[in-house]
Simulated assay, not measured.
Amino acid sequence: MGQTLSEPVTAKESAYCQNELYRVGSSCMQGWRINMEDSHTHILSLPDDPGTSFFAVYDGHGGATVAQYAGKHLHKFILKRPEYKENPEKALKQAFLDIDYEMLYNESWGEQMAGSTAVVVLIKNNRLYCANAGDSRAIACINGEVETLSLDHKPNNEAETKRIHEGGGYVEFNRVNGNLALSRALGDFIFKRNANKKPEEQIVTAYPDVETREITADWEFIVLACDGIWDVMSNKEVVDFCRKRIGMGMYPEEICEELMNHCLAPDCQMGGLGGDNMTVVLVCFLHNKPYEELIARCAKNNNINGSSDNITTTSSMDVDHLDLK
């Protein structure tokens, strides 16, 4: 699990942004960990492609350097790819490798021990592209039902184990070389030194899986979060948790805060569950309608008074509008 504090840091950095298509909230919390190593991004309108939105969560390990760099730059690498306009899926895959190359050679981080997961959602022309490397995760709620947008990359997955072995590594205690608990990541260059293998064939690779979906009027929201959330709650539990609170009239950033509080361990003796850094981005689809219509839609199908989980109503936070460039 890593080093922990004697008491968790529960202060949260929360933000929101909104346009006619989305109401987005985010929040992050250090929790029991010695340092905060996560990063995240939400951009309603990409500067070089104004009709496209970009959301991402990066869960760093061994330091925050790679996660922070990705948070500032990965979307730029995607937009620079020559395939971007015609083939965003390919552009996403190559951009993950491009930013890895940049950090390794041009930023001279080859000896850096740090790495980071990356789960990215790009929405362009009503089509969603989700690129994932690592065990952060994205899910959607479509008409109240869970839609999985990414699969976790764990060393004991059959395909991941095969690549690890062929790259010259091994899996021990469900970890790469007995060390790393995920099998794809940005950074972690110590696992990317096989000169006879392509970047996507290394023991640990930055090469992402990409899922594509068509956005319809039934799409209600998506959640991107690090494994500090998914280790504690299932996809369905997270969807139900968020949908219930939307139906209560809560704003996305407030829901992100409550979700982290719900997952936070009461002490640091729970085998790592609830003891990690936590970051959540909640993207609510407005479909050119007021947020109140989504509230009404979720409330209609929710038995709020009969809820079995602990609901605490909070007031709207006074947070700055965030639309990163």
Rank of each mutant, 00 (worst) to 15 (best):
G247F: 12
M29N: 11
G169W: 02
I78L: 09
K162T: 15
K198M: 13
L186D: 02
D98H: 07
M278F: 03
V283E: 00
L186S: 07
V146F: 05
C226N: 12
A181E: 07
K154W: 01
E200V: 05
D48P: 01
M248C: 13
V119I: 13
L46T: 00
H287L: 13
G271F: 03
W109P: 02
Y22E: 00
C256M: 03
G110V: 14
L128W: 01
V146N: 01
F173P: 00
I295F: 11
N196V: 04
H262I: 02
V232T: 09
I304M: 13
E89T: 14
H321K: 11
N125M: 03
R137L: 09
G169Q: 10
L104Q: 08
S53D: 03
I203G: 00
T65A: 09
E145D: 11
P50K: 08
N288S: 12
I99R: 02
L128N: 01
G228V: 11
M317Q: 14
Q3I: 05
E160I: 07
S53T: 06
A265T: 06
G275S: 10
P252Y: 06
V281E: 00
I142N: 08
P290F: 10
E201M: 06
M1T: 10
F77K: 03
H262Y: 09
S45I: 01
A114K: 04
K72Y: 03
N303G: 15
T161S: 15
K325R: 05
P266R: 04
V146I: 15
R245H: 15
A67E: 11
I295Y: 03
L273F: 15
I34C: 00
G51V: 07
F77G: 03
T65Q: 10
H321V: 11
A133C: 06
V210G: 07
G144L: 05
R213H: 04
G169N: 04
Q94V: 05
A138F: 14
Q202T: 09
T312L: 15
V146W: 01
N303D: 15
I311K: 13
Y207S: 08
S108R: 13
V176Y: 01
V232L: 04
E172P: 08
A118Q: 05
V283L: 02
R213T: 00
I142K: 13
H262G: 01
R127Q: 09
V281S: 00
A206L: 08
V204F: 02
Q30I: 06
R81K: 11
I295P: 03
G167N: 09
